[in-house]
Amino acid sequence: MTRIVTMTVNGQEHELPSPANRTLLDVLRSEGGLTGTKKGCDVGDCGACTIIMDGKPVNACLVLAVEAEGADILTIEGLQHAPDRPHLLQEKFMEHGGAQCGFCTPGIVMMAKALLDETPAPSEDEIRFALAGNICRCTGYTKIIEAVQSAAEELNKARAQ
C-alpha cells in the first residue's frame, strides 16, 4: 500500500511515494534525496536523524512517512541561506571544531536551532539538557557546547542592535 504523501520540505512542496512501513527518515533520504539527515541507530537513541517537524525537533526514524502528510519539515539542507552562505550555527561549528567525523553534526545543529528558537540565551546546563538525545562519539561535547554558546551570543548581539 504505497501512498503519495504531500509535505513541505525546506519551504518547497514535495510529493513523495511512501509505503506505510517506511519511516520519514528513509523517505527523505531515498525518495527525497536529502541525505544530510543521518541514520545512526534507527530507534530514537542517537539523534542523528533530528529534523524539525511543524516547529518541533523530532527523530525522523520514529515517524512514519505517512504520518507526515501535510507537515512542514525543516532538514539540515534547509538551514543554509545559500550554498555558499551557511547558517550561523554551521559557521560556529566550523569555527569551534564542533564537528569531527561530522556524522552527528546535522542532528545536533537541528537540535541546537530548535533550542535557540525557544531559548535565545541558554545556560550550559540548558544546552546539555537540550542535546541529551544527540550522541557524538568524536568531540567529547565541549566544542559543541562552545559552538552553540557562541552562536547564541552572536544572535543576541544582532538582535540588540
Binding site: G44, G47, T50, K56, P57, V58, N59, L62, V63, M111, A114, A130, A132, G133, N134
Partner: peptide, 9 residues
C-alpha cells in the same frame, strides 16, 4: 523521559 525529540512525539 527520553530526549526532547522523543518527548515531542
Amino acid at each position: 523521559l527520553g530526549s526532547i525529540q522523543v518527548r515531542n512525539r
